[in-house]
Amino acid sequence: MEKSLAEMQREVDRYISQFEEGYFSPLSMLARMSEEVGELAREVNHQFGEKPKKDSEDENSIELELGDILFITLCFANSLNIDLSAAHDSVMHKFNTRDASRWTKKNTDQV
């Protein structure tokens, strides 16, 4: 079942709201996000780079690391009352206008 960003934001908020501590401060969340991006970089390097995983390292995956990044992004947005669907729409508008001619589009004409 697909979930919308709004549904994911509500789900994360329900989860976080059950704890007295609530959301961490924006600075703490930025540090956590940086940590998670570093873990993603490590996984990508293990799978596609020149640095194989050590036998002593835990099994992990790019999928799980992206999930961690998504979770902290949802937390960050919720803590600042940011609607990620609206943010996404704004970003896509920017890309579709500012970058409309930046990249070579695929030829979609049927011959």
Rank of each mutant, 00 (worst) to 15 (best):
M29S: 08
Y23V: 11
N60Q: 13
L70N: 09
F76V: 05
E50R: 05
G22C: 10
K54M: 00
F24P: 01
R10D: 12
S17I: 08
L30T: 12
S79E: 04
N60K: 04
R14C: 14
F48V: 05
I82W: 07
L70D: 01
E39Q: 09
E57C: 00
E21T: 15
L5M: 14
D55N: 08
N78P: 12
M29E: 07
N45W: 03
V37Y: 13
E35R: 10
I69F: 04
R14I: 15
L64H: 12
E59A: 09
E43M: 13
Q18F: 08
E2R: 15
G49L: 00
D55E: 09
P26T: 07
F48R: 05
S28C: 06
E21P: 09
D55M: 02
S34V: 08
G49F: 01
E43V: 03
L30W: 07
Q18T: 14
M1Q: 05
F48N: 04
L64C: 06
R14P: 11
N45D: 12
S61C: 05
E36W: 10
K51R: 13
A6F: 08
E36Y: 04
E65C: 04
D13A: 14
L70K: 08
A6S: 11
I69E: 05
R42L: 09
E65T: 07
E2V: 11
L40H: 02
I62H: 02
E39W: 07
C75P: 00
E2T: 14
E65A: 03
I62W: 06
L5P: 10
G49E: 00
M33S: 06
R14L: 14
M8K: 11
I16W: 06
Q9F: 01
E59W: 10
S4V: 07
N60V: 00
L30G: 05
M33T: 11
E39T: 14
F48L: 13
K3M: 10
M8R: 12
E21M: 13
S25V: 15
S61M: 01
A6V: 15
D13V: 06
N81G: 08
R14N: 15
L70V: 11
S61R: 02
F19A: 12
M33P: 01
N60F: 03
E36C: 06
K53I: 01
A41S: 11
G22P: 03
E2K: 13
H46L: 06
G49K: 00
V44D: 02
E2S: 12
S17N: 14
G38T: 03
A77V: 03
N78S: 10
E39I: 10
L30P: 04
P52N: 05
N60E: 06
R10M: 14
I72L: 03
E11P: 13
Q9L: 05
G38D: 12
